[in-house]
Design a binder for these strands. Structure first.
Lengths: 188, 188, 188, 188
DNA sequence: CATGAATGAGCCTTCATTCAT
DNA sequence: AATGAATGAAGGCTCATTCAT
């Protein structure tokens, strides 16, 4: 095996490969040995790049938060709200497995650190705000309630393992969401 | 007089007291010793009522699924759709912490058994179907897409730790949801 | 195996059996697994009685310090100084192996905690003072220099592995030591 | 020009720098990484000069045994026995820290190889005999018991961490030792 | 029934050692 | 010659589980 040229690059590669494990089994159920095996290195190497299991997990979360921006960046623009919702949903549905795993990892992370103190962490706060900002901008939502509403809906969409199992009608869902957003002005 | 009259009753009591632990720390992070201590018995006793940690956890999930019906049963009836949505949301929000913990436990359960094979389990399928049936009936939704939509929204509402942290405007959300349901017919 | 009746008694028994290991191999070379095997219990049991390897070692040292009093207590009294020296040397020589091991353990302990801060520890200070007090009393030495002299000689006697290997002439040594003590007054 | 002119010279330099580590922490507690860092090279370099940790340690002990002759060689001669004892003690006391570390290292070495088989090793036997020969010659002792006696005393003097901590009266000790040696003839 | 001491497999982590560069 | 990334066996410690009381 040739010597690794870029330490940090390799670190990210390890994180990348670790994601699956943590998502599937959960932090407490993942052993460093199993992880090393899955990733294709020795436990010693893992500890060469990460000071501990917890540190690895934390870096994984931070890394994933970054990666997600790339998912969102793929979204094409459009004049039409319903079209934008549609594309967003389509993107999520196409990556549902990945997104669901993401949710799983985040939940673990939350438990690991306590949900009450979670949002005091810089990584977490930033990630979340970036996410909300993106949503608001892309969907052109300026109102908090509407944003929360859409956000809840989307979170549910990607969190619900039952829905995960089936095909939803992206078109109908888009219509409902777009209408809800558009209607909002009537209720203020 | 014997302390415990009903073996099964006591079993449920133990499960009940175990819920907090599993919800807060996650299956893999809960030790039988810690659990026993939290519940106030010895580990031996725990093993007298449950054959293993996994069995205990499984029974906990089944038990919780039952308990949730009691939450739903508290919901008063109403002619008005928006009012019904409103009451449902209010109920969820009043029990947000409990409901969120529930989500956490289910997540663990899912991972323990693999999400792909999850719905082949009788307990799980039944639970879920009961939940969907209740929603459809209570909100008077006969269409699958609408049901999925509302279900997604609700799942997100109770799963999202960020939303968990803040107060949402139940009123506005109710309006949006009720409108979305009502509007549905236009898009079929 | 019957349940242990006296927790503390058993703890001491474990310490007692541990002594050999630490003396022979040195703290850093003793593994908990090897120790458990030598002692005849499982590692789990070891940790049931001692919170850590270090704690075990510390308790061992404290326990040994106590045990040594029993060795000294066996010494019969005598009017004659040379006789007393003689009996002391004989006792040491008869237990040379044990005493040497003791020295080994103490040295390890010293290194573990840093020799500079060693005598700030209560256990250590007390042990040492008890030892010196006993020597002074038994040999009737009131002067510090003489005591240090005898102490040095004795420490060397039990520390020197070369001397350990051979028989020394207890009689001659006694004469030399007794004379040295008696002579002391001439040099003050 | 190559940085290291003499391979063997550099080896000794590495040993020299290693001494502190082993003396302070004990063989088992010293890691090759820590050693490399302390010495200022990479672990790879360490393994370039020594085939293993154990080999390094063994060479260290042999090297130190040689070095000690230099300490002894510094001793000036004198007609007067008490003066010679006095100078010897003074030398030891001035180098007490170094000498004590030496003792620690030897203890480790002894344990590593088993004290019972220790004197079958050539290095060890030679070292010890050189030491005894020097003592006998310098102090003019021809009798084994006397030599053992003085030897015990000196070993104790440098081994006892308690005495290490304080100042002894070199003058008084010299008097006692010299007298003991001189007196010896009376007791044969 | 209830207890908690005992067990040992398995976890996280370290460390002597190797080897490609 | 020198480096340090990579390895995996082994160490300290935990924990699900059993069982004598």
């Amino acid at each position: 095996m040739p010597k690794i040229i870029d330490h940090d690059e390799y670190r990210k590669e390890l994180l990348c490969k670790s994601f699956e494990c943590f998502a599937a089994k959960g932090y407490g159920q993942v052993t460093m040995r199993a992880l090393a095996e899955h990733v294709g290195v020795s436990t010693g190497t893992l500890y060469h790049y990460f000071s501990s299991k917890e540190a690895l997990f934390e870096q994984l979360v931070a890394f994933q938060a970054d990666s997600d921006l790339m998912l969102a960046a793929r979204l094409p623009d459009s004049e039409n709200l319903q079209q934008r919702v549609h594309m967003l949903l389509k993107l999520l549905m196409e990556n549902r497995e990945y997104v669901f795993k993401q949710v799983c990892v985040w939940l673990d992370f939350g438990r690991q650190h306590g949900f009450d103190t979670l949002f005091k962490k810089e990584v977490v706060r930033q990630s979340y705000e970036r996410y909300m900002r993106f949503l608001s901008q892309y969907l052109g939502i300026s109102d908090k309630s509407s944003a929360d509403f859409v956000c809840s809906y989307l979170t549910g969409l990607v969190s619900d393992p039952y829905i995960m199992q089936q095909k939803i009608s992206v078109k109908k869902h888009s219509q409902l969401v777009a209408k809800a957003i558009a209607d909002y002005s009537k209720y203020k």
